[in-house]
Structure formats: structure tokens, C-alpha cells
């Protein structure tokens, strides 16, 4: 379990370094997704499966899709069709795919472990998180909903068509 943690941590650090050193935004996003998946793996071995799922669904899914929408909307650079052709050739996605493969192998490895060896990890189930979230933290949940509403209104206001 420790080795799984260290490998995932190493992948997270490597892909994060690659994120901040890329020049192409789409390539950086690919590595950022790998970094988030590695962090999800770390949460999984820490005994937090619910948060690991949220990390994949919301961070690597929803938030990264927002980034991709904006990058595609901006249509950066004139040589866009060339970029597109370049994206289909191996080489650009080879790095992220390799790192993802390592993470997938780690995940399969953790699934093959039996229950007894996993007893060292105290797992916090989604049920416990839900009870805490809607019990003592219910005020925080309400505030989060307000924040999301404010974010929605703000994004709509800023994103609406410009009129001069």
C-alpha cells in the first residue's frame, strides 16, 4: 500500500511539473488531468473512496471540461488544423497515457488485495461523510449552495455577449 502511495505521489509531482512547464494549453490540461487522477488514487489508498470519486468526477471531469471549453472557444493560434492533426499522432498523448497506465495498474493491484491486508486502512465511507455533511456541517452546505449560485450569476453576467 505504501508503494502504491509513493508511485502515485511521484506521478502527481511529475505531471504537475509538466503542467507548469508546457507551452501548449491543451497539453498542459492533459497532464493536469493525470495529476488529478494520481491524487484520486492517493485518496483511494488513504481510505477516502468517496472523495476519490468526487476528485475524478468533478475535478478531472467537470472543471477540466470547463477549461477545454474555454481553450477551444478562444481558438488560440492560427495553425489550428495542424494542431488537430498533431493531436492524433502518437507523441503528444504518449506521456499522459503512460502515466495513466501506471495508475490503472496500481488500481487493479489494489483491487486484487484481500480484505485482511487492507485492514490497516481505516476507511471512511460515503455514508459517514453524508451524515457529517448534513448534520453538523449543514450550514456550510447552505453557504456552498449560495456560493455556487453567486458563481453561476457571476459567470453568466461576465460571459454574456458584449454590447458597446
Amino acid at each position: 500500500m505504501l508503494t502504491v502511495f509513493y508511485i502515485a505521489a511521484l506521478i502527481a509531482v511529475i505531471s504537475t511539473v509538466l503542467v507548469i512547464t508546457r507551452t501548449n494549453a491543451v497539453h498542459a490540461l492533459l497532464y493536469l488531468i493525470v495529476s488529478l487522477l494520481a491524487v484520486a488514487m492517493i485518496f483511494f489508498v488513504l481510505g477516502a473512496p468517496f472523495v476519490a470519486a468526487l476528485e475524478v468526477i468533478i475535478y478531472a471531469g467537470a472543471i477540466m471540461v470547463l477549461f477545454i471549453f474555454v481553450i477551444m472557444m478562444l481558438n488560440l493560434g492560427g495553425a489550428h488544423a495542424k494542431e488537430e492533426a498533431l493531436l492524433l499522432t502518437p507523441g503528444i498523448w504518449k506521456g499522459p497515457a503512460m502515466l495513466c497506465l501506471i495508475l490503472a495498474m496500481e488500481l487493479i493491484y489494489t483491487f486484487t488485495l484481500d480484505r485482511a491486508t487492507l485492514s490497516a486502512i481505516t476507511e471512511i465511507t460515503p455514508k459517514q461523510v453524508g451524515i457529517a455533511l448534513l448534520g453538523p456541517y449543514v450550514l456550510g452546505v447552505e453557504l456552498a449552495s449560495m456560493l455556487l449560485l453567486a458563481g453561476l450569476v457571476g459567470a453568466y453576467h461576465l460571459g454574456r455577449p458584449h454590447k458597446h
Binding site: 468526487l54 476528485e55 468533478i58 475535478y59 467537470a62 472543471i63 470547463l66 477549461f67 471549453f69 474555454v70 456552498a144 456560493l147 455556487l148 453567486a150 458563481g151 453561476l152 457571476g154 459567470a155 453568466y156 453576467h157 461576465l158 460571459g159
Partner: peptide
């Protein structure tokens, strides 16, 4: 996570 989602939507706008 909630805060990041709200922040990134406004930031990208």
C-alpha cells in the same frame, strides 16, 4: 471542491 468550481467558472468567464 465547491469553491474551486465556482472560482473557475467566474475565472474562465
Amino acid at each position: 471542491l465547491t469553491m474551486a468550481a465556482a472560482e473557475v467558472s467566474v475565472g474562465l468567464a
